[in-house]
């Protein structure tokens, strides 16, 4: 089965910023998180998927269709929630719903009603008058019920309070159950990554820094506390300080320690945040 989103060799220059070349495929049934420092090009990449800007090279296909082709029908199957909604300020919540809902054949009005109730959103208030958190809740309530195959969320939890964040995760997990669906999201919240992501696509200064299966990434890096650290560089060694050593190949490292009779006092997997910081350095 071809990927639902195919990003091939995509490049985009914006003033001095160079994005790409980026290659990434999004498969149905998966949640992929784009992770990177501020200004690493995540939002730009998402906007390029939505054909909001012209590519300087490469191609993007959504459900097999070139996004910058003449057929714009693919947009019916994609929900895009930008970091900041543009053009929503003058509308009240219920007006936005009336505007958006009829555009999607699978619009789920029950889910919408449920989310409005759970998040306690005042629909008769103008979007521009809502707090950032409320705006995000309304955006999400207008995103999930569209029931599209693909859901693209740019920092969906950035302004949510803790209970709302938990609620959103449950709703998203529910949403993923119904059919074969794919989610692409950007986030700076480790919680989102741990609980939601299957794949992490790392970006640094517009360049890709690897696509990882989350569990593989999470079990690859180990920190060892070693008494009598040898002067030689150990196999798998990534960095060391004092009696601490970080390895990205625990098997090789432990084999070496065993062979040389070196004692590791303790060892522990690195936290996901730590691994990401390491990879984005």
């Amino acid at each position: 089965m071809p990927a639902w989103i195919e990003i091939q060799d995509v490049r985009k220059n914006i003033d001095d910023f160079r994005l790409g070349p980026i290659n990434l495929n999004i498969e149905p049934g998966t949640i992929t998180a784009l992770v990177g420092n501020n200004g690493s090009g995540k939002s730009t990449l998402l906007k390029l998927i939505m054909n909001l800007a012209n590519l300087d090279g490469g191609a993007i296909r959504v459900l097999g269709k070139l996004v910058d082709g003449n057929d714009e029908g693919w947009k019916r199957h994609v929900t895009f929630q930008p970091q900041k909604q543009v053009g929503w300020n003058a509308y009240k919540g219920h007006e936005l719903k009336e505007l958006i809902a009829p555009l999607y054949t699978k619009w789920d009005d029950r889910l919408f009603g449920r989310m409005i109730e759970l998040f306690d959103i005042p629909l008769d208030k103008r979007f521009g008058k809502m707090s950032p958190g409320m705006q995000q809740k309304l955006s999400l309530s207008l995103a999930l019920p569209r029931g599209t195959d693909i859901l693209i969320l740019d920092e969906p939890t950035a302004s949510l309070d803790i209970p709302s964040k938990a609620l959103f995760m449950d709703l998203l997990v529910d949403w993923m159950e119904q059919e074969d669906r794919a989610v692409v999201l950007t986030t700076h919240q480790p919680e989102d990554l741990r609980k939601l992501a299957d794949y992490l696509f790392l970006m640094r200064d517009g360049k890709p820094a690897g696509l990882y299966e989350k569990d593989v990434l999470a079990t690859t890096y180990r920190r060892y506390w070693i008494s009598g650290m040898p002067a030689d560089t150990l196999p798998g060694e990534l960095s060391r300080s004092g009696n601490e050593l970080i390895s990205d190949n625990p098997d090789a490292t432990e084999q070496y320690l065993l062979e040389h009779g070196i004692d590791a006092i303790d060892n522990k997997l690195l936290e996901l945040e730590e691994i990401i910081s390491l990879l984005l350095k």
Binding site: M50, E72, K75, R76, P82, V86, G87, L103
Partner: peptide, 8 residues
């Protein structure tokens, strides 16, 4: 911008 993010 808003409408380009929707299936319009």
């Amino acid at each position: 911008v808003m409408l380009q993010q929707l299936p319009v």
